[in-house]
């Protein structure tokens, strides 16, 4: 892992919805080119945190810096430098693969020429050149998911946020998807991914485990397994979750 600079810096981030505290005093940094996993059960506050980092939600308090820009005052600059893929593979089902890429390329300010080049490149990366003119509705779930990832990468963002990107797809497609994630990270893009699949946590460079809105652990999967005397991440997670509830 090349640690040549922080791309995300969060200090004492807190988000409250009325009386409910979704995120409590989160502090962490993410390095350039890193695959950073955000782990937690459903409702642990993963999605809230990712939405704040993307500028979809305003934090209640705390300091945020994403891609070198201030999370309160420079949101527009942040938006140009990040890609986002939500839990639902949000593509337009009545449009073709090519059209989806073209629209988002246009929204991110790419020129027509750039869009053409990028479309070819992206479709080649995920082996979907033949399906370029298929309607999204006709694609199987795994392909939609890969394409949604490509669309999030259309403008070559510095950081790409993936909110539970592998929900509901089969293990082979998941494995396949992680290979694409690796490729992107090796090329220098930081990947910030949330998941509740513990086997996926093993693929991350570092993981941050969230329990009830609080960071319970943050380290490499190897260090965490050693520290908690566990064979895999699943055990680490269960130990942490039990510790909190008991």
């Amino acid at each position: 892992m090349v640690q040549n600079g922080k791309v995300i810096e969060v200090k004492n981030l807190t988000k409250k919805f009325g009386d409910f505290t979704a995120n409590s005093n989160l502090t962490f940094s993410v390095w350039k080119g890193e695959i950073f996993g955000f782990l937690g059960a459903n409702g642990a506050g993963k999605t809230t945190a990712i939405r704040i980092l993307c500028g979809l939600l305003e934090p209640t308090s705390g300091e945020i810096s994403v891609a070198g820009f201030n999370g309160y005052t420079q949101r527009n600059k942040i938006k140009r430098n990040i890609g986002y893929m939500s839990q639902r593979f949000s593509l337009y089902e009545d449009l073709t693969a090519k059209e989806n890429i073209r629209i988002f390329g246009g929204i991110y300010g790419l020129t027509n020429k750039e869009i053409k080049v990028r479309t070819k490149q992206l479709l080649a990366e995920i082996d979907m050149e033949k399906q370029a003119d298929w309607l999204i509705a006709a694609l199987p779930l795994g392909w939609k998911q890969k394409l949604a990832f490509s669309v999030a990468m259309v403008h070559n963002p510095k950081i790409v946020f993936l909110d539970e990107p592998t929900g509901g797809v089969d293990p082979i497609t998941r494995r396949n998807f992680w290979e694409i994630i690796y490729r992107v990270a090796r090329a220098g893009t930081t990947v910030f991914v949330t998941t509740h699949y513990m086997d996926e946590a093993e693929y991350c460079d570092r993981v941050c485990i969230l329990v009830d809105g609080v960071i319970e652990a943050l380290d490499t999967p190897l260090n965490l397994k050693t520290k908690y005397g566990a064979n895999n991440m699943d055990e680490v997670f269960l130990k942490l979750a039990r510790k909190v509830t008991s």
Binding site: C54, G55, L56, F89, S90, Y92, E93, Y108
Partner: peptide, 13 residues
């Protein structure tokens, strides 16, 4: 409903 609104809101639009 499709979730594309979120993606649009994250975009520079």
């Amino acid at each position: 409903e499709l979730g594309t609104m979120e993606v649009l809101l994250v975009s520079p639009l």
